[in-house]
């Protein structure tokens, strides 16, 4: 009986599909359009609520003192100076380490590598590393840099760890940029007797530069925002003094925000919001620079 009914329903629904009902079918298109607009609005609305909330709770705390004071056990005396300096150190050092390695990898893979197993091995590894959770990199950094190489919980150990986190981003972006340079440029240079490296250095890299720089700024943004790997290697949550050199212990802005957010007092949540404004502001600035740089350099070539 039940089976019979379901067969009947099947026939009915098939019947419906074959019946030409343009209005109903167009209505479905229309409903989907409304739903998808709603999805976009909800997604972007969440972002707007997030930013609005952070601005409302954080702005009253944002002043020059907040930027130039060290952390404190009292919210009204706490500032982000040490963490901000730590973040800038971390960003600069990470890029200094990761940029040459990433670009060199990209040049090798695009300009030299054949289609053999070594190339495949490298490519599989890059793809997988891009998807490895950042906290795992933290465990690698803790073992390799902090323990085995004896760097301690220093800025250098943090930056090396972070360089490994962002390396796949730089490699992928640089490869795309290098690949986009027309083949005829290379052929012209080689035909005039330039060596492979001369061709790359004088004719490929200059044209790939805007893309490479954009990729690096993306990587720098990631390095600024990442928290987990640095907590794992043992970056401190409370540091009252500025680091003296790259072997000193350190903290960064996201860790400070994490620490303040974890405290029960309302005031700490508000200064965490103020810290977030500075963090997001830095990211915005960085990305604006990327856009401008790209526009300017692209005009030149």
């Amino acid at each position: 009986m039940a089976a019979e009914q379901s067969v009947k329903r099947d026939i009915l629904s098939q019947d419906l599909e074959f019946r030409p009902s343009p209005q109903a079918r167009r209505l479905r298109s229309f409903i989907f359009l409304i739903l998808s607009n709603l999805a976009v609005i909800i997604a972007l609305g969440t972002l707007i609520i997030l930013i609005a909330d952070v601005l409302i709770s954080g702005t009253p705390w944002l002043n020059l003192d907040f930027l130039t004071r060290a952390d404190s056990r009292f919210p009204n005396r706490a500032g982000i100076q040490v963490a901000l300096v730590g973040t800038l150190y971390m960003m600069a050092l990470t890029i200094v380490i990761a940029l040459p390695l990433g670009v060199m990898s990209a040049i090798y893979l695009e300009e030299y590598a054949g289609k053999d197993w070594t190339t495949q091995l490298i490519e599989v590894n890059i793809n997988n590393l891009a998807a490895v959770p950042s906290v795992i990199y933290g465990l690698l950094g803790l073992q390799l840099f902090v323990r085995w190489l004896g760097m301690g919980r220093s800025i250098l150990a943090g930056a090396l760890t972070m360089a490994l986190v962002v390396l796949p981003i730089i490699i992928v972006a640089s490869r795309e940029a290098i690949r986009a340079v027309p083949q005829s440029f290379r052929e012209a240079s080689l035909a005039l007797g330039a060596t492979r490296w001369q061709t790359i250095w004088n004719h490929v890299l200059p044209y790939a530069l805007p893309g490479i720089l954009t990729g690096n700024i993306l990587a720098a943004s990631r390095a600024i925002g990442e928290t987990a790997p640095l907590i794992t290697i043992g970056a401190l949550t409370f540091v009252p003094f500025l680091p003296r050199d790259i072997l000193d212990r350190f903290t960064v802005l996201p860790i400070l925000i994490f620490n303040w957010t974890s405290k029960p007092q309302r005031e700490f949540h508000d200064i965490a919001a103020a810290g977030i404004i500075v963090l997001l502001g830095t990211l915005l600035l960085l990305n604006a620079v990327a856009v401008l740089l790209r526009a300017k350099l692209q005009k030149r070539y």
């Binding site: 969440t46 997030l50 952070v54 925002g225 990442e226 925000i257 994490f258 957010t261 990211l283 990305n287």
Partner: peptide, 11 residues
Amino acid sequence: LAGVPTVVYGF
């Protein structure tokens, strides 16, 4: 949305 640091989402 993907560029916002995760610590901010946690907050």
